[in-house]
Amino acid sequence: MRFVQVAQHADDLKRAAAFYAALFDVEPAALFDPPGLLFFDVGGVRLLLEKGAPSSLLYFEVADLHGTVAALRSRGVKIVQDPQLIYTHDDNTLGPSNSEEWMAFIEDSESNTVGLVSHTLAAGD
């Protein structure tokens, strides 16, 4: 079994397409309108944006969290929470061993909160 798709609420597909295309640096994989379905391929998992979907809290991994947040802020994206250290991984249970997990939260074009995550080498390593 593998994870195939996750849905996220979007009132305005054009606005959501522009926001997520800029965030992912990739164009949508498909648009079916009607009935109002917008898809992105995110690492082999489909992100479905549609009006009828509930709002979900999604987390996306980024290579440079601080740089990504700074770039989003400069574009006028609302930063809900600046980057902060969440956890230091001693083993590979939930993240790379000997890494720090950092998170920040932004608001997308549809007023959904989106988590951004990165892992860096733990301090002292």
Rank of each mutant, 00 (worst) to 15 (best):
E27H: 10
Q5H: 12
V69D: 04
I86W: 12
A30E: 00
P54Q: 09
L47A: 15
A70D: 12
Y59G: 12
Y20S: 03
T88A: 12
D108Q: 03
L116P: 02
F40K: 06
F60T: 05
N92F: 15
S99L: 13
N98D: 15
L49C: 10
Y87E: 11
Y20R: 08
E61A: 11
V114N: 07
V26Q: 14
K78H: 05
T88P: 14
S97N: 10
G95E: 06
T68M: 13
F40A: 11
E61Q: 15
W102P: 08
V62F: 10
D12L: 03
P35S: 00
G95T: 07
A53N: 01
A7N: 01
F39G: 02
A70C: 11
A16V: 13
G67Q: 05
Y59D: 11
V26N: 10
A16M: 06
Q5N: 15
H9R: 12
E100M: 05
A7M: 06
A123V: 09
F24K: 08
V114M: 12
A123G: 14
I79F: 01
D125I: 15
V117A: 14
S55C: 03
P35G: 06
T88I: 15
D91K: 10
A122V: 12
Y20W: 06
T113Q: 13
N112I: 04
P96E: 08
L48D: 03
F32D: 07
G43N: 14
A123D: 08
Y87M: 10
V80L: 03
D25C: 12
D64P: 11
N112R: 01
V80M: 03
A17P: 02
A7I: 08
H89C: 12
M103L: 09
D11I: 09
L31A: 04
G115R: 06
A21S: 09
R46Q: 11
L85H: 15
E61L: 09
V80C: 01
V45Y: 06
L57G: 04
M103K: 13
H9T: 14
H89N: 14
V4T: 10
L48G: 04
A17S: 07
P28S: 03
S118A: 08
M1R: 02
E107V: 01
A30Y: 00
M1A: 05
H89V: 09
Q84A: 10
N98I: 05
I106V: 10
Q84P: 14
D25K: 13
R15K: 14
K51Y: 12
R75G: 00
H89Q: 15
S97E: 11
A29V: 12
P28C: 02
E101I: 12
S111M: 04
D91M: 14
I86M: 14
Y87S: 10
A70Q: 09
A104Q: 08
N92L: 13
A122I: 07
I79N: 04
V4G: 09
